[in-house]
């Protein structure tokens, strides 16, 4: 359980930024607080963004924009989200614990923390996604995930190019509301593919080899084998690396297959 010396609702992003900069080691931006609770952080100033209107989902300038305080539950119920990318964003989070948890957990919290088990990050990575930071500006999600966590910055929103791509999501879990043992998202737009594999158990990454297989017409099975071979799979409580590697081959194949069928149906 964490402790908090002072709890602040900044009235503007500038104020939030200024507060954070005062002591970015000990001050913290709050997300949904469910994961935070598991640690023992001693927070000097807890900065709650929930009164800054960041809980909006908007479609503008050719992008689907998810504010940092959008809850995972909103992804399941908001028609802008469910109507796009074959609904994989809502579907990817629908297994996470329960509705009351997903009403707390936020997009910003999930993406910023770079959790290996994040279903959402895995799904977003297979789309054309950028993150918008208060200081760091806008950068591609893959680049953001690969960089170390900048504790002096604030994630404001996630932008997804509204390009009408088809997508599919697959995961295997020990129990239906558990973390994924392995998660896979695949998308396709005009012959260009993205294959994302998460919970390896390390964080989600793209398999370029798998995407190339699909682009060159080698087919879903070859893509599955490529993702299994290209990426690194480790062991943890939930499964061994060897098993994960086998799962990767199967789930990538299945997701690619589904995506192809959706593409063919238009």
């Amino acid at each position: 359980m964490y402790t908090i010396k002072s709890y602040v609702f900044p009235e503007s992003l500038e104020e939030a930024d200024e507060l954070l900069q005062r002591d970015c080691r000990n001050n913290a931006i709050l997300g949904g607080c469910c994961w935070l609770k598991l640690g023992r952080r001693r927070i000097r100033s807890a900065i709650d963004l929930s009164k800054l209107g960041l809980d909006q989902i908007e479609v503008r300038d050719g992008f689907l924009e998810l504010g940092a305080c959008v809850t995972l539950r909103q992804l399941e119920t908001n028609p802008h989200v469910t109507a796009r990318f074959d609904g994989i964003l809502g579907r990817s989070v629908s297994h996470i614990v329960g509705v009351q948890f997903r009403n707390c957990a936020t997009v910003g919290g999930s993406v910023f923390s770079r959790f290996g088990f994040s279903d959402l990050t895995c799904a977003l990575l297979a789309l054309d996604t950028t993150v918008v930071l208060q200081r760091g500006g806008e950068l591609p999600l893959a680049e953001f995930l690969a960089s170390p966590i900048a504790f002096n910055d604030i994630l404001l929103k996630v932008r997804i190019r509204d390009d009408g791509r088809h997508a599919a999501y697959e995961s295997v879990r020990r129990s239906t509301t558990d973390f994924p043992t392995l998660a896979v998202a695949v998308s396709c737009l005009e012959g260009r593919w993205k294959v994302s594999v998460g919970a390896r158990p390390a964080r989600a990454v793209l398999s370029d080899d798998a995407a190339r297989c699909l682009e060159s017409g080698e087919g879903p099975a070859a893509a599955g084998a490529a993702a299994a071979n290209e990426l690194v799979y480790g062991s943890d409580l939930r499964a061994g690396g060897d098993y994960r590697k086998k799962l990767a081959a199967v789930l990538v194949r299945r997701a690619a297959q589904t995506c192809m069928e959706r593409e063919n149906k238009g």
Binding site: R174, S175, T177, L237
Partner: peptide, 23 residues
């Protein structure tokens, strides 16, 4: 399960999964 030092590693409902209704 226990780790090699004897620390139980499934000591929460996050790691020790009891069936929920969808299971």
């Amino acid at each position: 399960n226990y780790d090699p030092k004897g620390q139980m590693v499934n000591s929460t409902f996050m790691q020790y999964k009891i069936p929920c209704r969808t299971d």
